[in-house]
Design a protein around this nucleic acid. Structure first.
Lengths: 121, 121
DNA sequence: TGTATGTATGATCATATATTCAAATATCGT
DNA sequence: ACGATATTTGAATATATGATCATACATACA
């Protein structure tokens, strides 16, 4: 059914302590990395990570985010678009402002975990 | 002491419900994102994330990692170098092989958290 | 000591990404 | 309706990054 070529024994390190079966099993057990990789990638850029951090602690409009981050409104808006597309943040229109907030408990848990150890360099 | 220019009131959204003080405080409270962003960036690439996942579950030499990931030894080795430089994985020479394993509990905790929700798209 | 195996490295290339700029859109107050 | 405020968008650009290739290095074994 699968179009994958069969794994051959020659593809393995000879005399490796783990056998053919282990490599096959490891390959089969590998979950899809797509979503998780995208998530980490979104969080792996300092401007976006800062935005997520700020929204973790409160709600902010675009202009103030840009001020706090010493960045341009345009740049912040571009990053917010990405975060919105990934449903990590949500936008609420309030008058002529758009106020952003976190939209994913998942992200809070990851940040909590990540910043817990921060400064262990 | 700081070379930062003083924040001016004009830099703020007028009539924002949060006041000048909040923006100043938010700016001051913002932790350094450097390390955490680097960490997420390292994990935000599917080949590297897969490597970390595999090493989370066991120990593997470079050749077998490449086989499991359908990638080249060279490519995997380059990624391992990055992960080594960040002290996320460690290398152990065993004969002519180099066996890699995780070198950071932190990463395990993050992966555990991340994959817990995977497939909630 | 030579050869095969296993890994690391540097250069190159194609692509992806962050940022800036200019301009468009939308909302409020006068 | 007009001007000011607030945000979004697309294009252009510079930089970063992942993959590949060729090659160097290092170890085991004959």
């Amino acid at each position: 059914m699968s179009c994958e070529p069969e794994l051959e024994r020659e593809d393995l390190c000879e005399a490796h302590e783990v056998d053919f079966r282990s490599v096959e099993e490891a390959k089969a057990s590998l979950p899809d990395m797509g979503y998780v990789a995208e998530l980490f990638k979104a969080m792996g850029e300092s401007t976006r990570l800062s935005i997520l951090y700020l929204l973790w602690k409160g709600r902010w409009c675009v202009h103030d985010l840009a001020t706090i981050l010493d960045s341009s409104v345009s740049n912040v808006s571009h990053h917010l678009r990405l975060l919105r597309a990934m449903r990590l943040v949500k936008a609420t229109k309030e008058g002529r402002k758009v106020v952003y907030s976190l939209d994913d408990d998942h992200v809070e848990a990851l940040m909590s975990e990540a910043f817990k150890h921060a400064g262990h360099s």
